[in-house]
Design a protein around this nucleic acid. Structure first.
Length: 271
DNA sequence: TTAATCACCTGAGGGC
DNA sequence: TGCCCTCAGGTGATTA
């Protein structure tokens, strides 16, 4: 399930193959993703060159001569570089073919992902314009976390998963970052101390940096652009470890639901 | 403005 | 073996 490190891994994986490459054909096999894939992409992008592949939050931005494709991998999406002749499988919904015989293929079994197209600056798109800072940027820091959390009555876990506060912290890394900073997930955001803000912002940065280094997290669905799984799940300290001993204190990890999402924490270490 | 809930979708896993 | 049910999860839209 792609979170920010998985999207970053994908971005880095596909960029060398498609930057400065020329699109020969776009195939839409199933238009029905989260939002319908726009009609006429092939005529708009055929014979156009791709300039760059970048990432904003969990959105991949593929900038071409005629405009930018905005791709979100949703819950189960993956983008892979393949030979164009590679057999098409059931959930391969979208594909960009290139002059040198490769293709970029989107597979998304649950179809929560999206493929959008804009001619103007993608950062001004309504989905991107109100997003919070990138977690690994200097803009996201303890002071910002403390300031934005004042008077907020939601739990700290739901707060750090809010993309208007900081982008890219999904369910897995939210539990992990709170464990690292020893903060109980049900603590009210408004009650966060300055010291905890410092510890939490640092934990979020560290956990995401580590995950990117390891190539993302593999639980069920994620493989990187070359089809290889990520390895970060081997390092998860609380996520999906309900009942197992805490790596710090040996007390069992507890699972609760917050905001309709599974949440894992140590009742002894996190307060 | 904030918080909570719903909806979208399919595969995995458990129970019978 | 097959059917049914529940769960998982990112995020925009809707409601309170």
């Amino acid at each position: 399930m792609p979170e920010l490190p998985e999207v970053e891994t994908t971005c880095r994986g596909i960029a060398p193959h498609i930057e400065n490459n020329t699109i020969t054909k776009i195939i839409v096999r199933n238009r029905n993703l989260r939002w319908p894939i726009p009609i006429g992409l092939n005529s708009k992008l055929k014979n156009k060159k791709i300039f760059s592949v970048t990432r904003r939050a969990k959105y991949l931005l593929i900038e071409a001569e005629a405009g930018t494709l905005i791709i979100h991998l949703g819950m189960s999406g993956s983008l892979r570089i393949l030979p164009t002749a590679e057999v098409v499988e059931k959930h391969d919904h979208f594909e960009i073919q290139f002059k040198d015989g490769i293709c970029l293929r989107l597979r998304d079994p649950r179809r929560f992902g999206s493929v959008l197209f804009v001619k103007a600056d993608p950062l001004n798109h309504k989905l991107l314009i109100n997003l919070g800072p990138e977690p690994l940027s200097d803009e996201f820091n303890a002071a910002l976390l403390f300031e934005k959390s004042r008077k907020r009555k939601t739990t700290i876990k739901q707060f750090i998963m809010d993309a208007k506060i900081v982008v890219g912290v999904g369910n897995i890394y939210a539990s992990e970052a709170l464990f690292l900073s020893k903060i109980h997930p049900k603590r009210l955001a408004g009650k966060l101390t300055k010291e905890q803000s410092k510890s939490l912002s640092k934990a979020i940065k560290n956990i995401l940096k580590q995950a990117i280094k390891q190539g993302g997290t593999t639980l069920k669905d994620f493989t990187s652009s070359d089809g290889k799984p990520g390895y970060f799940s081997q390092k998860l300290k609380v996520y999906n470890r309900a009942g197992e001993p805490c790596l710090n204190c040996d007390k069992p990890i507890k699972q609760i639901t917050l905001g309709q999402r599974s949440t894992f924490y140590c009742t002894h270490c996190q307060t």
